[in-house]
Each structure stands twice: as C-alpha cells, then as structure tokens.
Write a protein that binds this DNA or RNA. Structure first.
Length: 204
DNA sequence: ACGCCGATATGCT
DNA sequence: GCATATCGGCGTC
C-alpha cells in the first residue's frame, strides 16, 4: 500500500517517532503529510505534548477512552475533537504507555489543492487552507475516523514522508497556543518566516 | 489587532 | 451535572 504520489518520497520509519516529542517535533518540520487521494502538504508548524510530564497534554492524567491512541504505538495518528467543531491531528511518539505526541499545527499545500479547497470552501487564500490545527485536519478530511491510523504502514491511506528537504537549521521556538496550562513550555516550532503558519510573519 | 461566539465530546467533581 | 477544550470565522476597530 505504498501509493505515495511521488515515488521519490520516503515514508518516515517507526523509529523516527520512538523518541521524546520535543525531539521529534522540530524534525517533523519540512516533512510531508500525504493522503492516498493525492493530497500532500509540507508541515511547517508543530507542537509537542509530553504525557505525564506535561500538564497541558490530554494524556497528563493517564489513559482515558479518548486518549487511548496516544498511549499506543508510536507512528500512529491521535485525532481529537474540540470546541464542538474542530479536529486536531497528532503523531504519537515515544514508547507505548508514555502518552507522547506532536500536534500538527500548520502545513503548506503541495498537491491536491483542489480537494483541500473543496474540504474548506470558506478558505479564501491558499495560505488559509491548513494554517492551523483545525484547518489542517479539515483540509485533509481528517476526522475521528482517522484516529489510530498508522502513519508508517498507511492502513488508512495517510502517511508522513520526506522528500529530502531537511528540517530548518534554526526553527523558531515559542510558547504553545490555545492552552491554559504549561503555556510556558517552549514546545511550539515553526519554519522561520513561513507564510503558511498559524501566526504568519508580520508584513514589513 | 482584537473580541466574540459557535456547538459538543470528554472527563472530572 | 458542568467547565473546559492542543480553534476558526467573522465582525469591529
């Protein structure tokens, strides 16, 4: 089931994810989220959540029904629902039982842009298609049905791959967003100066 | 730049 | 029961 749109792209191996999310997260920058229907986008903003070490993580208080996937094997997708309308997508990291994850916060559309526009009819500019965790999930048609998807094996037609572009040398590190606890953990990273992040660089 | 509100699953008390 | 949520879109200023 290795139907990536570009044969030169390499699916990230399981070992990539089996580490601390603060280590995995910045390395996910410039990787590519791929769907088997042709949608692909470069990941430009991420946020780490570290289980019992992290009061802001869904997994902080141990496994629940909702967070079961987060406590499972690395390299799977943890999808949650919030604010009555938005879905969020995380790559599970670390070892089984740790509840580690990296939230995919923003991406730059590369392929299948028409499908993304259909999925997000209200988005005006292309940089509004996936510049936020809810937008990114919506652009890719990711809902709860994708919770537990294997990003390595591609059992649900979703992968994270590398096209050879390295992560940025000096990613921008900053406080996390949209949470009320442990905001001060500097665990949000994005590609410097990138237009497709959730907080775009100010125009000069 | 800022503020408001939508609409609901989840998990604690 | 109820506060809260890993937000987004639209309005106003």
């Amino acid at each position: 089931m290795s139907e990536l749109p570009d044969p030169g792209w390499q699916v990230l191996p399981r070992e990539f994810y089996r580490r601390h999310p603060a280590e995995v997260a910045p390395e996910l920058l410039n990787k590519i989220l791929v769907r088997s229907d042709g949608r692909a986008a470069r990941i430009v903003e991420v946020e780490a959540y570290a289980g019992s070490e992290d009061p802001a993580a869904h997994s902080f208080r141990g496994p629940t029904t909702r967070t079961a996937t987060m406590f499972g094997e690395a390299g799977h997708l943890y999808v949650y629902f919030t604010y009555g309308m938005h879905w969020g997508s995380n790559a599970v990291c670390g070892e089984v039982g740790q509840g580690y994850g990296v939230l995919l916060r923003a991406a730059e559309p590369l392929l299948g842009v028409e499908l993304m526009r259909q999925a997000r009819p209200r988005a005006r500019r292309e940089r509004d298609l996936a510049s936020g965790p809810g937008k990114l999930s919506q652009a890719f048609g990711i809902t709860g049905a994708f919770d537990g998807a294997d990003l390595v094996g591609g059992d649900r037609g979703l992968w994270i791959a590398c096209d050879g572009t390295p992560p940025p040398d000096a990613p921008v590190v900053g406080p996390r967003i949209g949470i009320s606890r442990a905001v001060e953990f500097p665990w949000r990273w994005h590609v410097p100066g990138h237009l497709h992040v959730s907080v775009p660089p100010r125009r000069r």
